[in-house]
Design a binder for these strands. Structure first.
Lengths: 192, 192
DNA sequence: CGGATTTGATAACAAATGTTATTGCCCGTG
DNA sequence: CACGGGCAATAACATTTGTTATCAAATCCG
């Protein structure tokens, strides 16, 4: 059994099995749409193998907002939580193995978690950390040049550079593919 | 008594007085530093009158990350929560009246709140909303042109345009003061 | 294996944005 | 009232970044 969150989130002991049985396993090819733009999100995904991007359409161009890899959970979080149409789509980049849980089941688990102080605090902490992350992404988008953000990405998420096609990375950085190519070639020259 | 959060956050009845007594009132001139960059935040501020900006230094230039007005709460949230040195400074723009609460007192209040399901859920919801906000700011910084972000600001926070000196707005948008001037003059011409 | 599609690099030109310098206005203070 | 500092507009020039087009390499698929 695939158990990435056993020690991280879930209580040990009896509850475990009832939680784990809520997850369904699927195998998907590359470029599978797991959630369409405009659809209301009912599933949270957990990646056993593969990689996923979250993107949205901006005047015909698609912009990638995030990448996810093994052992990470993915959902269109605002749609999932509020039951509103998703601004973003969720799509696999590589073929992979995904586990998913239905919103109803996850909500039931969360309600139980909120009654256990240690888990409740972990839950709150996770939301805070996610907020801090977005805050830092926002700051970086304002203060750093595209080149600097590319260097940050190399340093903090080398996985992305290795596994993700370059045009998705460019759209994530908010620049054209041509400009990303230029940055790479400039860095390669500087390194010599 | 100044009670902006009475209905929003705090329980009615007995607890109220003990909570409200934790807040201290100060009057401050413009350009008062309420928290220095690098300092560990111990206070959360609540603005009765005036306006505040949060900013950080980036290679000698200062960049404004947020503006706050009446009835809003301000802190260097990551420093405040984790007890680490603040990346940002907090500074008044106008002379004003500020209420502040010490971290110890606020933590005590939060611990009590977390035991009351309705308030606990509001607390969790507030953190989620803050995370969604930062997420949207991040998306906007990537996908929108500076001109579009300026128009968004006019629409969503007209207060900022009216009360804040333009060079702070430019630093908030991540552009030079010259470029902001150009955007304004371009928009003025287009409007004629 | 071979053709189609995806991916990435580069050149040439256009548009957006930054830098520096200058000017003028407004406003607080002596 | 005069003066200085903070603030905003504008011009001239430099740099960054986008757009479009072309080509080559890698990869997928029948």
């Amino acid at each position: 059994m695939f158990t990435p969150f056993r020690n991280k989130f879930l209580p040990e002991g009896d509850k475990w099995d009832s939680y784990v049985n809520c997850f369904k396993r699927i195998e998907v090819p590359a470029k599978t749409i797991l959630l369409k733009e405009g659809e209301i999100s009912k599933k949270m995904f957990l990646i056993e193998k593969g990689c996923i991007r979250v993107w949205y359409n901006n005047n015909g161009k698609d912009i990638t907002s995030q990448f996810f890899f093994e052992n990470e959970m993915v959902s269109s979080i605002e749609s999932f939580r509020k039951g509103i149409p998703s601004l973003t789509a969720i799509e696999t980049i590589e073929p992979g193995i995904i586990w998913w849980i239905h919103k109803k089941d996850l909500n039931r688990i969360i309600e139980e978690i909120k009654e256990i102080p240690r888990l409740r605090d972990m839950f709150i902490n996770t939301i805070f950390e996610r907020a801090f992350d977005y805050m830092k992404y926002f700051f970086s988008a304002i203060k750093d040049t595209p080149q600097q953000r590319y260097l940050n990405l190399i340093k903090e998420r080398p996985e992305v550079i290795k596994r993700v096609p370059q045009h998705y990375i460019a759209s994530y950085l908010g620049i054209s593919t041509v400009h990303l190519s230029r940055i790479k070639s400039k860095l390669a020259k500087a390194k010599q």
